[in-house]
Amino acid sequence: MNTHTPAALLAALLLAAPAVGTSASPTPAPAPADSAATTTLRLTVTGPTPATTAPAPDSTAAPAPAPRTVTLHCDPPGGDHPRADAACADLDASQGRVDRESDTACALLYDPVEVRAEGVWRGRPVSFARQYGNSCELNARTGAVFAF
């Protein structure tokens, strides 16, 4: 049988708590113990091909576009992604999914764009690669994530 009364427990709690109005400095919030809540993604976009108005004089094909790569950090937003705040907000809104449904109507122009996302979203591994038919489709389906 428990011999402690509720009044005795309350008194013990009050004695253990710091007095109100004391000058003791507040305890800072603890730093994350591990990286379980961090987000760090390496994002790469390749394409679309450069627009040309006429074929090259030597009839060679246009050179393949060079990939563009940035790093995105969230919590807090950062890295070298130019729209880190918006990209992190889009990932948070979609629960970390890079690609999502969209009602946006895009022109049926085939100008492919390849994207890749590798890293961690809130401690969960991310490995995403996809080719979109054009930049409109990419933007509609991924928001600000690949907007760089």
Rank of each mutant, 00 (worst) to 15 (best):
G119E: 10
Y132C: 05
G119D: 09
Y110L: 14
W121A: 05
A107Q: 14
R122W: 06
G123W: 06
W121D: 01
S102N: 03
L138I: 08
A107W: 05
C106V: 11
D103G: 11
R122N: 07
T104N: 00
G133A: 15
G119Y: 08
L109H: 01
T104R: 07
C136T: 08
E118H: 12
G123D: 08
D111K: 13
V115N: 00
V115P: 00
P125W: 07
A105F: 10
V120M: 14
R124K: 15
E101I: 01
E114Q: 13
R130N: 04
V113Y: 02
L108V: 10
S102G: 02
S135Q: 08
E114Y: 06
E118M: 12
L138D: 03
C106F: 03
N134G: 07
V113I: 12
V115H: 00
E137L: 11
Y110H: 14
A117E: 04
C136E: 05
Q131S: 14
E137W: 01
D111E: 13
A107S: 13
T104A: 09
D111T: 15
N134A: 11
E114A: 15
N134C: 09
D103Y: 05
P125Y: 07
D103H: 09
R116D: 05
N139F: 11
C106H: 07
N139R: 14
R130T: 14
R124D: 10
E114I: 06
R130P: 02
S102R: 02
E101V: 01
E101L: 02
P112M: 10
L108P: 01
V113D: 01
S127T: 13
G119I: 11
R130S: 05
D111G: 06
Y110S: 09
Q131P: 03
G133N: 12
A129V: 13
V120F: 11
C136H: 04
A107V: 13
T104G: 00
F128T: 02
G123C: 10
E101D: 14
V115W: 00
W121K: 08
P125I: 12
V120R: 13
A107E: 14
E101W: 06
S135M: 05
S127A: 11
E118K: 13
N134I: 13
T104W: 00
D103M: 03
A129E: 10
S102Y: 07
A117D: 01
P112Q: 10
G133C: 08
R124M: 08
S102K: 02
A117H: 03
E118Q: 15
R124E: 14
V115L: 03
C106Y: 07
C106A: 05
V113H: 00
S127M: 01
N139Q: 11
Y110F: 15
L108G: 08
Y110W: 15
L138Y: 04
E114M: 04
D111N: 13
N139C: 04
C106K: 06
V126N: 03
D103N: 15
D111A: 15
R122M: 05
R124V: 13
N139T: 13
L109Q: 02
E114G: 10
W121P: 01
G119H: 11
A117Q: 03
Y110D: 10
E118N: 13
N139S: 13
